[in-house]
């Protein structure tokens, strides 16, 4: 506090440091985040389509998306379908793997590395690989299923199978990430809790149910919230696995971002696509707030 007088000089090296750090940062965020978002909102209020004059149309784009675009609802449903299967299934699998691996010593490091390998691999590359695995005539998956007498499946051509095919790959790709997060959470649980419960005669299931799950609740919340935010924006998997633009057979893998990408960059309906993006933003915000509310109130200790 004795040094306050020194700081009063506007051009002191302390003030210069702050200015050099903060001013460019503010400019960057004004242009690339707030400016861009404001611009997006401006676009969403206009009919902004390549080759047509720009026209202010108020909230018509939003109404059109919500009232006149059956493909939007199709894509919303597909996104929900993808999320509602991938997140719980991937999460449970990751939790089981983490519990299984935890405490295996040297082997744990090996298993962790193996299950994490898909996470560090380029999503485009592994989507290409899975497209080959799903190939109906020569693909490995059909060959293996054939051994068990399953007839050849048209994984990526069948509207009923395309989304499950994407989901299987997405779980394979993402489970290692969630597992590592759970492993970190498990290591934060004091061993004495388990020891005390074991002395009281608790079995493995009881330990899992009454110690692991409640104490892991913050981690589970994190996995759930970030999982929902991510999966509502799923795009690359569809785009590469199903081929441009990723809408799949009978639009069965058309997700919101696939839909929006096509509207924006194939049809150049930028106003319309921006309105769709804001609706997606709204959905993400609402779901995140609901999850945080529900999970916080129920599990705060």
């Amino acid at each position: 506090m004795g040094r306050i007088r020194k700081y009063k000089n506007l051009f002191s090296s302390r003030n210069m440091l702050i200015l050099v750090a903060i001013i460019p940062t503010i400019i960057f965020y004004i242009v690339f985040s707030y400016g861009a978002m404001g611009y997006a909102f401006y676009l969403s209020l206009h009919n902004w389509t390549l080759g047509e004059p720009v026209r202010f149309i108020g909230f018509s784009n939003y109404l059109k998306v919500l009232k006149e675009d059956p493909l939007f609802y199709k894509s919303l449903w597909n996104t929900v379908y993808y999320s509602i299967v991938t997140i719980p299934l991937g999460g449970i699998l990751a939790l089981l793997l983490a519990v299984g691996i935890n405490g295996l010593g040297k082997l744990a490091t090996l298993f962790r590395a193996i299950y994490f390998a898909p996470v560090v691999s380029s999503l485009v590359a592994i989507s290409v690989v899975w497209r080959w695995l799903y190939q109906p005539e020569f693909g490995l998956i059909n060959e293996v299923l054939g051994i068990f007498g399953v007839p050849r499946l048209m994984w990526l051509q069948d509207p009923n199978l395309a989304m499950p095919a994407v989901i299987i790959m997405a779980i394979w790709h993402g489970v290692g990430y969630t597992m590592v997060i759970f492993l970190a959470g498990l290591q934060g649980i004091p061993q004495t809790f388990y020891e005390a419960a074991m002395i009281d005669g608790a079995n493995r299931w009881q330990l899992f149910r009454n110690i692991t799950i409640p104490l892991l609740m913050p981690t589970i919340t994190f996995v759930l919230v970030t999982g929902v935010i991510g999966s509502l924006q799923v795009f690359t998997e569809m785009f590469v696995l199903l081929g441009t633009p990723g809408s799949g057979p009978l639009d069965s893998t058309r997700t919101i971002v696939v839909h929006l990408y096509q509207r924006a960059f194939s049809y150049f309906q930028l106003g319309y696509a921006s309105a769709t993006a804001f609706i997606l933003f709204g959905i993400i915000l609402i779901l995140t707030i609901i999850q945080l509310r529900l999970l916080r109130t129920r599990w705060e200790y």
Binding site: T25, Y34, M37, L43, A273, F281, I284
Partner: peptide, 23 residues
Amino acid sequence: IFMMILSTMMIPFAVTMIPLYLI
């Protein structure tokens, strides 16, 4: 300022990609 910066993490890329493309 810090909150303004931090809260941009919530903006989905889908919202900013179209204006960014125009910029």
